[in-house]
Design a protein around this nucleic acid. Structure first.
Lengths: 211, 211
DNA sequence: CCGTGTGAACAAATTCACAGCC
DNA sequence: GGCTGTGAATTTGTTCACACGG
């Protein structure tokens, strides 16, 4: 069937992993890769890779495999990684400052254009190259400087309120670091970054192996 | 059917979310909750909550719902959150320091007992109350001070090597912050904390809504 | 002969719907 | 009457297996 819309979300979640691995292969000078090899590299079945890719087109050559550079480029295009994404961060506490200083966003095209907090001790400062504004100025700022993604790094109790403000100001996706289940309206995106939740499900399996 | 083994991993991953929400309800003074109310609170169907819980026992009362305190306690027991978990961190760069200073682990029973790095400028220092050792001393340290979980906060190129060392020294689970797909042997646990991957799948959906 | 692309078969997860108990 | 617990039905996701092109 033809490429077209509606690949399941699980598939979309795997594409960035493929893209990253292809980029690594590319930088190792690899030109062609089969679904088998790619699968070995990251622990998934070759059939899954082929099926996942088939939602978007026919990128391989029978008997040969995939052109690494071509496929990497296609995936970046499909995912929208061929453009820059503008983000604002709310909450410049310990966690927020660490996020502002994190060097991993920029090379992937994700740019934090401004940060916001209520604490007047931090408002006006520059952290990790990003200026911190009063959170009261957030709506006006976003009117003047549209952004795509909002990073929520406030404490749990304030997170929903902050998310609502961001979404009302035209933000289309939330990256949530607060330990609380946020609700977002249909059509808006939400991803949680949750080290504690990850640990808390891991322990279920660790239990069993204890002495 | 009787409670017993083998709940799917997706179910285990949801239990910490339930546990956290129940704790919030408890602190708001709530004594009883129905699967409907709990589902509304965090955006899942009531049937899913009931089915998930049914893998582990019968915790509710017909016509009434669940005792909040009781269910919260049961979930903590099931997940192994009624004990302290000992962790070591490897990689005391920007990211590692932020993790060491993060205040969210301790109140949930996750304790970082030591940190390791190769950089002699950081070895010997104390960050966020945790002493930093030379990574060469890691095997001996873990022999003397067993730990359950290893946090990998080194750069991508070194991550697999670090993970292998940790796993060889008796670590049972890895919390990986490095942007690379780690391979771990069967029976060992792996959870990835990946803000960039989360963003990269989010952009797929954001694309569509752009002007 | 190799490896993709893909329907068809299979497996897993979610939701339905209702009997049973409070 | 309200709400749990759970088999059965449905939906969703994964793997198989093979026709076909290079």
């Amino acid at each position: 069937m033809t490429p077209l819309l509606s690949a399941p979300e699980v598939v979309i979640d795997r594409l960035p992993v493929y893209a990253r691995t292809l980029a690594a292969l590319e930088s190792r000078g690899r030109h062609v890769v089969s679904s088998q090899e790619l699968g070995d590299e990251l622990g998934v079945t070759p059939a899954q890779i082929r099926k996942d890719l088939s939602y978007f087109g026919r990128f391989g050559k029978q008997g040969r495999g995939y052109n690494v550079q071509r496929l990497a480029g296609e995936l970046r295009r499909i995912l929208g990684l061929d453009q820059e994404w503008r983000m604002v961060l709310v909450g410049v506490g310990n966690l927020g400052r660490a996020i502002l200083r994190y060097r991993g966003f920029t090379p992937e095209g994700f740019k934090i254009i401004a940060a916001f907090d209520t604490d007047l001790n931090v408002v006006g400062r520059v952290v990790g190259g990003v200026r911190v504004y009063n959170v009261e100025d957030l709506p006006q700022f976003l009117k003047d400087n549209p952004a795509d993604i909002g990073i929520v790094a406030v404490r749990a109790v304030a997170a929903q309120e902050v998310a609502d403000i961001l979404l009302n100001c035209g933000i289309k996706g939330i990256l949530n670091y607060a330990p609380v289940a946020l609700r977002v309206p249909k059509g808006k995106q939400l991803k949680d970054i949750e080290p504690v939740l990850a640990l808390q499900s891991m322990t279920y399996y660790l239990k069993s192996f204890s002495p």
